[in-house]
Simulated scan of single mutants.
Amino acid sequence: MSLREALNSKAIFQHECPHLVSDYVNEHIGNHSITLQGQKTGRASLWHRALDPAISLSKITYGSRVRVRSPELQDIYHLQVVLNGQCRWQLADSERMLGPGELMMLNPQENVDLTYSEECEKIIIKIPRTIITNTAISHGASIPRDGVKFARHVLHINQFKALSQLLELLCLEAESEVVDVNMHTPYQILLANKLLSMFNSNVDIHGSYDMNVRCFEIIDSYIQDNIKKDVSVEELASVSRVSKRTLYNLFAKYRSITPMSYIKQKKLSEVRRLLQTKEGAIRNVTEVAMDYGFIHLGRFSGDYKKTFGELPSETLRKTIVA
C-alpha cells in the first residue's frame, strides 16, 4: 500500500469551499489564514485523523492556487510532504519550491508563508514540541534556549524508505477501530528519532554513540543469559541504567524495532538454532516453543514463518531427514 492509498478513506471534506476547510484546519491542525489566488473554488478536500492525543495526520488540497500564511506555529512542528503539484515555501531571504515527494519541517514560533499550486496535495503531520525535545534529551543532546530548530532544507521521501513506511503505518493505525494506547509512545519515539536523524538541526544527537553501543552490549548479554525467561522492558532499562523512554529511543534509532520485538527475535533465533541442531535433535516443536515462553503456539508459528520464511515444523523436518 502506498502512502497516498493509506490516506484515501473517509475524507472529512471532499470538493468543498476552501474557506470551510480552512476553518477546520485552524481548529484542529494549526492557526493560519488563506488567500485564494486562482479562479476555481469549491474543490477543497481534507482527510484528518488523530493518531493519539499528541500527533495528528492530515491530507489536504485546496483545489485552487492558495497562499497560506501563519504568524507562528504554537509549540508544534509540522512535517509536510507534497504528494502532487507544487508548494512554494517563502523565507525571509529566499524561497524553496517543493514538488511531488519532497518534504520539509516547519518549526514552532516561526512565520509560515506557503503558496499551493492548483494541483497541490500535501500530507501534514503535527508533532508537539515536547516529543521532539524529550527525544533529543534522551540522546544526551543539550537543548538551546529557543528549542530544537530544524534546518530549512528540502528532502525527498524516496531517500528515506523507512519514513514512508512509518507514515503509512501511522495512517493505518489512525484509521483502526481498535485503539492500542500501549503503542502511542513507541510510535511517537520512532517518528521523533527519524526526523532528528533525517533533518539537520541545532542539536547533536550523535555524540553519545559509543555509550549506546556499550548499552546494547549489556542488553544483548542480559537477554542471552535470560533467554528462557519473560524479560521485561523495565528489566532492560534497569540493567542498562537508562529510563524506559531512553530505551525506546535507543531501539528506535539503532534497531528500528521496539524492545519487546527485539527480545522475541532473539528467542525465535534460539528456537531455530535448536530445531536445526542434529545432536540431541528436538522432536517436539511445542515443547521447545513453550520452553522459551511461547505460550500461544499459533501466534508463535506465524511469527516464526514471518521471520524465517517457513514453519518451525518444516525446519525440524529438514533437520531430521538431512
Rank of each mutant, 00 (worst) to 15 (best):
V21D: 01
V148E: 06
I131K: 00
R4G: 00
T35H: 12
I127M: 08
E177Q: 05
G309D: 01
H206T: 15
D52M: 01
P259V: 08
P128W: 06
L73N: 14
I76M: 09
T277P: 00
E270W: 08
N212K: 14
A50R: 08
M1F: 06
S238I: 11
L36C: 15
G280L: 01
T130P: 04
C120Y: 04
R283A: 00
S197T: 13
F251G: 07
R273Q: 04
T319I: 05
L275H: 05
D113G: 10
G293L: 03
H184Y: 14
V213D: 13
N107V: 13
Q265M: 10
L311V: 03
E168T: 10
G293M: 08
T258A: 11
L311S: 10
L79N: 08
E314A: 12
E279P: 02
V25W: 15
R96S: 13
D180Y: 08
Q188P: 07
L57W: 11
I263M: 02
A136W: 00
V288P: 00
P128Q: 09
T185Y: 02
L274E: 03
H28T: 14
Q86I: 11
F294M: 03
L195Y: 04
R245K: 02
N111Y: 13
T135Y: 02
K306H: 10
I55S: 04
L83V: 03
K244Y: 02
Q39Y: 05
I263D: 02
A237N: 05
N158Q: 12
C171M: 04
I263L: 03
T246K: 12
E95Q: 12
P259C: 10
I127G: 01
D204V: 08
K278V: 00
N284G: 08
T115S: 13
K253T: 15
S45V: 04
T115H: 09
E5R: 10
V203M: 08
E27W: 14
A174K: 06
P186R: 03
A141W: 08
L275D: 01
L167Q: 09
V112M: 13
S164R: 14
V181E: 12
L167F: 08
A237F: 04
H206A: 15
T135P: 00
A252M: 01
H206W: 12
Y209Q: 15
A11G: 00
K229E: 12
N284V: 11
K228G: 03
Y262G: 03
V231A: 01
H78V: 07
